[in-house]
Amino acid sequence: MTSADLKDTTAIVIRPVEAADLGQVIAIDAESTGIQKTDYWYELFHRFGTGHSRQRLFLVAESEGTIQGFIIGEVRDWEFGSPSCGWVFAIDVRPGARLAGLGTKLFDSICAGFRHAGVDTVRTQVSRDNNLMLSFVRSQGMMAAPVITLEMSLD
């Protein structure tokens, strides 16, 4: 299936992840990052994928039995004194399925989930040299948050 076939995004279902999807989720992540992190994904599934909490969301985009992408996020309360807000910390769409609106559908769905959980702001963190992710989140209407991420080497 190509991204042209996926242009009709009505054929796409966005739903909570299930255990049976994990193999495909791990493969999509491995294709993007070059690292196969099976244990990490099983742990994420247990923390975010059970569907028991409104605060934690792990959604997948499925078309005809194939997982085409996923998004993960959670509501964080009073982090560094900030009022509760939704955090998106992972999103990935299969390379062959990109630019067909799936990323947008996943993002819209997690935002709907955050609203349902009672928050009105969504945040994410993107490496400043990751132009693809920055362009994507900008296209969704995100602007710089009033926070600055800082770090230092502990050497």
Binding site: R128, D129, N131, L134, S135, R138, S139, A144
Partner: peptide, 9 residues
Amino acid sequence: ATFGSITIE
């Protein structure tokens, strides 16, 4: 990073 990720659209 800011100017380079904001398209005209």
